[in-house]
Design a protein around this nucleic acid. Structure first.
Lengths: 203, 203
DNA sequence: CGATCTAACGGAGAGGCTCTCCGCATCGAC
DNA sequence: GTCGATGCGGAGAGCCTCTCCGTTAGATCG
């Protein structure tokens, strides 16, 4: 609207860009090791920058998390496009999509919590991401409902939350992966219209 | 085994007992208002005692929480006994029990989190409580399986976690009670053997 | 009803966290 | 090379959890 700014916000200064990347790299590793509640100051120190720099780039934990996650969005988007391809039936597509979300939400220990919060807050940088995924869920659900393989009284938002919840349970049960699978199965039985003939081991 | 101690640990000194009660009362109120993450020091101050006193009685947040919850166990136990009475069929009994757990886990904002952790940690004061409830769930599930109203491939532990998860979702969706109900319904559809004829509004 | 012996108290403070503020260094356009 | 504008970094404020230990005050006993 007014100057030579490169598109949106003006391009970052070289050092700023370098620091931003450093932070992202370090945070990715740090959160992987310590979960999303790891100390931000520790990340700054490990990245070799001052705390102020970190907080200027990412005013709070959520913003940092959001930046980290959009970098990972690609995988999910790819999965979505593959499922959209139509190589599987609507029910399996929805199932696969929910599975992908569950896996995505498990990227870091403790991640489901802020995601859940973002789902309802709408004022968090994460909420945009979540909203987008809910919309996609809507799309898959719609298709499954249209061909009669999903109950009509389920809402996409709730399926999304169920996927988050499954991931949340998994976070606890390090010792017991079966629980997460069981919950996912429970969910599928919940939204599907047909009695599942397949055994529990299928998933 | 050795003295005039009243049964287990020797009886508390009068002031100690008084302080303990004060803490419990204050914490109950404080957690209700601020969620389970509220400041413990603030509770001590509000209770009119020193921080040291609080931490001597309850070495950490979990211990305090556990004490608070056992005080509430009664309601749940009562519910259990009522359901055991046999006035309803096995499926509804299981359903009612899971509902009771969900409500119980919603006593304070953020409570599901430590409960989930306790479910797998086994070294937390909360885990005893959780384990007890899982056992009861087992009992109701068994009955429902025996009369053919619950699938055989579900485990009590997973139903318990599902109830916790439902409560967890509700915690987020202050604006949207429907989500919690939807999840509960999803769960029921998940474990029940019969296609639910009833509409979603029934729950 | 003191005297005495402990159990229990309370708050200062260590250590860790989030986040802000602002003097200073550095970048990059000219 | 000069000179804004932009970005850096770390000291420190404020809050939290939890500990330590000198002091207080129940309980018990002659």
């Amino acid at each position: 609207m007014q100057g030579m700014t490169t598109d949106k916000t003006r391009a970052l200064r070289a050092d700023a860009q370098r620091n931003r990347d450093r932070i992202l790299d370090t945070a990715e590793q740090y959160f992987s090791e310590h979960g999303v509640s790891g100390s931000l100051d520790a990340i700054a120190k490990q990245a070799g920058i001052g705390a102020g720099t970190l907080y200027r780039h990412f005013p709070n934990r959520e913003t940092l998390l959001a930046a980290l996650l959009t970098a990972r969005d690609d995988a999910l988007v790819a999965r979505r496009d593959h499922l959209r391809g139509g190589s599987v039936n609507a029910a399996d597509a929805l199932d696969g999509w929910l599975d992908a979300i569950t896996a995505w939400a498990g990227a870091f220990a403790g991640l489901p919590e802020p995601l859940r919060a973002a789902t309802t807050t709408s004022s968090s940088p994460l909420s945009v991401t979540c909203q987008g995924f809910i919309t996609t869920t809507e799309e898959f659900l719609q298709a499954a409902q249209d061909d009669g393989s999903a109950r009509r009284d389920v809402r996409a938002r709730d399926l999304f939350l169920a996927a988050l919840a499954t991931s949340w349970v998994r976070g606890a049960a390090l010792a017991d992966d079966a629980s997460a699978a069981a919950l996912a199965e429970l969910t599928r039985n919940g939204w599907a219209t047909t009695r599942p003939a397949r055994a529990v081991d299928d998933r």
